[in-house]
Design a protein around this nucleic acid. Structure first.
Lengths: 217, 217, 217, 217
DNA sequence: AATGAATGAGCGTTCATTCAT
DNA sequence: CATGAATGAACGCTCATTCAT
């Protein structure tokens, strides 16, 4: 699946979203929960139909095959990760003139950790696809590479000028900040009961900030 | 699948390993690569047979069903993760009387990052199963919880006594150290070209150590 | 398979019978003839599909596995043998006040011999299953033991009181009457051309009646 | 399979029987019991090998395929039924100058009922084959038709001359005598516990004799 | 003679997808 | 639009049979 295809799909899906009948919405919900519970491959069309309370044929009325249904399920997520979220984030953080590293990290970590927590099912599905779909990886790769350049990098650069952040390459810093987030998600996958999310955030922020703060000597 | 079952499987597989004919070895290799490329469910028996250069029936001669084959593929990994690795690690680190935090972190990060790098295919497969097999999670969970208590926790405690490490809960510290390792694995999954592994290690160690080192004031 | 399961199956099949599409009816017919010709195990799903003129998948649309199809095929028989037949028989014979042994035997033999003749294919299938399915035997055993007690035994008792029948145990008498019926079925299995059925009945009735009639001295 | 083929097989098997190693004998025994328990189709070569305590390949050393093994198992039976038994019977009964019907019937029924009881496993297997193998029926049919003509018919004719037996066609009489025998075998198949064999014989003989004895008036 | 790994056709069954109603 | 019976390719797996050792 090329990027253009994804965008096409996304946009056609977006258009559909508005027209979606109640039955279609139910199909989407049923698919989401089943894909998350059992994986995409292990979920059959008839299972989706049953949980949605419709006939099998109805599943194929709007979503012309199972893969298209998967994309429709994933679309709001990719949208959130790569555009909406970014935009929101720029509004929230770039506009404010962050003077302290902690303010910046806390805002970012809190935002993303809640995002992960709220969209855990979609993330699980997406990760599952990532592992088996060899074309999905490079595409997200691109997004992961490009997005921070326009959002996080400028902030980091400003913090660097003020000597408020350690002088490591920007991508290394971003990657480091992502560590606790990814670990948090890992706990969800492993069904490890996380601490209350506030605590998770506090500990993560404390350690990241300490890690990124330059030593005086 | 209970833990005892897993151990049974592992031991019977180990016994088989020795008796394995060349064709059976090929089947194991073929299964490993195909599971990693496409996922377990998406890989058919006939595909495995074809890549191994054998007949379908031969796949089932020693591995009585596909799941047993999966276990045979994953066995060396689980072994390494949960026993061998732990044992080695205790030898390597506990015996030496680590005086500096960096020595400890570097030893651990280098060891585990190489381990991840060397077993990336098996890890991808295991993660894939984790997402769809609801019984695998809790089992590994247990291992993840218990193992550090006997290996890493004593070292952390000693470092705490010497004020060489920040006074956070032990499990939070362990989780934080795992962050860059998990992120590193994430890059592999996303097919993001990592830096040379030495650099990955150096940056990770630098940031983790800085994050865990107490501030004087 | 417990009796309740059989009854469940029977009732759910009965419900299906009405809903059965023409293709499904063809599947039932094809299965019946193939099971009778070749036995249950030796008949493949694809063979059934081919003879029914449908796709393999259609065989499994209503009958969820081959065994359920077998039961659907046998159901009309078990129904007739163990309920309908019994009921009819009670109506036909118990109500009439049989005064002569011959009347009773002739009614019974004629009825059952026609029944065997009309359902020879189903009987062959059932016998085949009886030989390989160790759970079917005891179940029918029960039915064979219980049914006569409520239908034939009272009549025999009355005939005994009137000294119209030999004073042997009731079950021995029933078993003796069944002899020619079973032999008749044996001829069908061996593809031995039977005589015209009227003759078969006349001879059997003559010999059975003579066998059961008490000698004066 | 033509009759000549059966005879060929039988004779070649007979020759083999003498050369049979202990392992081969075990294979024969294992096959017999398994075929009787589960049916021919449901019994796999490896199952036979396991029960016989040999390797799969050994099963095919003497018996070149499963069907040949079946024949080897069935041969002693067909032999007994159609030649040995007949010969023995002629010796036992024809030579004696039966004056009473009961003597004749008792000898015959006792002999055959014990024969059935002793060879119940082989009979079950043979019946199973009879139901699925459309070529076996006519062959046995022939044997069933021809054998009595040379053994039982002359005796019956002599009894008729002495007015000791009812004047029904010979084949009807034979068929009637077989009734209780077949019913007895039916009980074995249905796993219905029979009475002590002496009782079974006594009741059967009593009823058959009564059935075949002419009434004075 | 005995072994058991290897073979591949064939089995029962599933399921994404289509289409007449 | 919705339905669900029909389709047939594909799957996991079995097993009679072969053959190198």
């Amino acid at each position: 699946m090329t990027e253009s295809k994804l965008r096409e799909l996304y946009e056609q899906n977006l258009r559909q979203m508005d027209n979606l009948t109640e039955k279609q919405q139910n199909i989407l919900k049923a698919a989401l929960s089943l894909f998350a519970e059992q994986g995409f491959d292990a979920t059959s069309s008839s299972q989706i139909a049953k949980r949605a309370g419709v006939a099998v044929g109805s599943v194929y009325q709007h979503f012309h095959n199972k893969r298209e249904l998967l994309m429709a399920v994933l679309t709001p997520l990719t949208k959130s990760v790569f555009s909406q979220a970014a935009d929101q984030f720029i509004d929230k953080t770039l506009d404010k003139d962050y003077n302290s590293l902690e303010q910046f990290i806390r805002a970012l970590v809190a935002d993303r950790m809640l995002f992960i927590s709220n969209n855990r099912e979609e993330f699980k599905i997406m990760l599952g696809q990532l592992l088996s779909d060899n074309q999905l990886g490079p595409e997200l790769n691109h997004a992961f590479n490009e997005q921070p350049k326009t959002t996080a990098f400028p902030i980091i650069d400003r913090l660097k000028k003020k000597k408020l952040i350690i002088d490591y390459p920007n991508d290394v810093i971003v990657q480091f900040v992502f560590g606790p987030l990814v670990t948090f998600f890992g706990k969800i996958i492993l069904a490890i009961k996380p601490m209350p999310i506030d605590q998770e955030i506090n500990y993560a922020v404390g350690l990241i900030v300490n890690g990124l703060t330059p030593r005086s000597n």
